[in-house]
Design a protein around this nucleic acid. Structure first.
Lengths: 228, 228
DNA sequence: CAGTAATTCAAGAAGTCTCTTGAATAGTTG
DNA sequence: CAACTATTCAAGAGACTTCTTGAATTACTG
């Protein structure tokens, strides 16, 4: 105990988890899994990779203890291993944002210039939902993710329906859009489209996983099916 | 904007920071740097590697924005880039501990069995320092680190002096020892040595960097030089 | 301004990682 | 049980990582 090589091995143990975070494809997988469990095939489609390669990345995450698997019929469903994993991914994003100068350019390339895009914090939105008139909240994620959990009162506008739906939304004074997280582009598209039509729209600074992680209220299923 | 390859590049940007965390030697460097800035030569000695290799690891950390450099005379001093980096390293340790089953064995190999070792949280120690009789607090780190900052009232017992000093410590009822962090072995040695002599000793669950990061009171320099 | 000390660069050997392709396996359905 | 689907395994090409050795660079010192 206390020998040089056992110290080496201990730190290599931490590094094994770091290694799991060292591939962009694996981080995309974690990001998608933060939305909810998924089969290998769906994950492969979401990150635009082959199934075999996706499977092997998932095994790396599994080996690092960041995800868990469960069989469901003849498919294998992967899920995040726990809340600590979301925290770790959040810490990685925060640190990268704070200290990697190069990231800003990459983010602008992917997301476009956000300087004109008004944002609102989780806390602000939670506060504003407590008072009338409440802002109209748009959930710009695929319908399945909305059904699995959303901000109470939010209206589901799946990203592929955005172009058609944006024209006939109730013309609210105030609209807040959110999607999967800070680096998800759907809510940006919604806010920009609404702004072009003269609606006062803002985007939530991050996404639904962060909302849920913060312990804020969550609604499940289709609220309109059983109206208040 | 929004293209597949710009998304790839964005996530590869996060992965670049993950990659910096993917080597045990680099994590050891971060751990040492959490104690304070250091020259390349000292860092190389602390992690038991050649200077050239250490320099190259430091450049990886520098490229990821996790450390900064500053010239001081004819040596280059590296330091952590900011508090977010400490948070990230803490999140990595926490997640690894929570989800990587293999880590427990590695930790036992390096640190020995801690099940008999009483621990105390930061909050508990802070609370107990507010009341008389206060526990005797031992800072089991090299003298230079003690001088750079320590728990107020703590007595410096550098690890190399531990075997001789442990015999003639004031026989306090209650002793709390701390060192660099959870995975630092010095405080364990101190607690074990004191227990063998029948002293009721506990170790702080983590170390001085966590204490400081938590905003708890910190003393600098040698308090005995200017006694209260 | 030559000498010295600390750091960085360069090259190379051994090993590892990513992604592709094609085959093997496990589980379900008619 | 045969056909089918989803996932995993295996092998290989090409690129990258780690650590070593020795030379080059940088900045201070007398």
């Amino acid at each position: 105990m206390g020998s040089a090589s056992s110290k080496t091995r201990l730190y290599d143990g931490f590094a094994a988890v770091g290694k799991a975070l060292s591939s962009g494809r694996r981080l995309e997988l974690l990001d998608v899994l933060a939305q909810g469990p998924r089969s290998v095939e769906r994950l492969a489609a979401e990150i635009g990779q082959g199934v075999a390669n996706t499977s092997s990345h998932l095994h790396v995450l599994l080996g690092a203890g960041l995800v868990t698997t469960e069989r469901d019929g003849n498919r294998v469903v992967y899920a995040l291993a726990g809340a600590a994993v979301e925290d770790l991914w959040a810490a990685l994003r925060a640190t990268t944002q704070a200290h990697a100068a190069a990231l800003d350019r990459l983010a602008v390339d992917y997301l476009g210039d956000r300087s004109e895009l008004e944002t609102i914090t989780r806390a602000d939105l939670a506060e504003r939902l407590r008072h009338i008139p409440r802002p109209l909240v748009l959930d710009v994620r695929p319908a399945a993710e909305f059904l699995a959990g959303h901000v109470p009162g939010a209206v589901s506008v799946p990203p592929d329906e955005l172009p058609t739906r944006v024209r006939r939304l109730p013309t609210a004074d105030d609209v807040v859009a959110y999607c999967r997280g800070s680096y998800c582009i759907y809510a940006d598209d919604a806010v920009r489209a609404l702004r072009r039509r003269g609606v006062r729209a803002a985007r939530l600074e991050d996404g639904f996983p962060e909302w849920r992680r913060a312990g804020l209220p969550v609604a499940v299923g289709d609220e309109r099916a059983a109206p208040r």
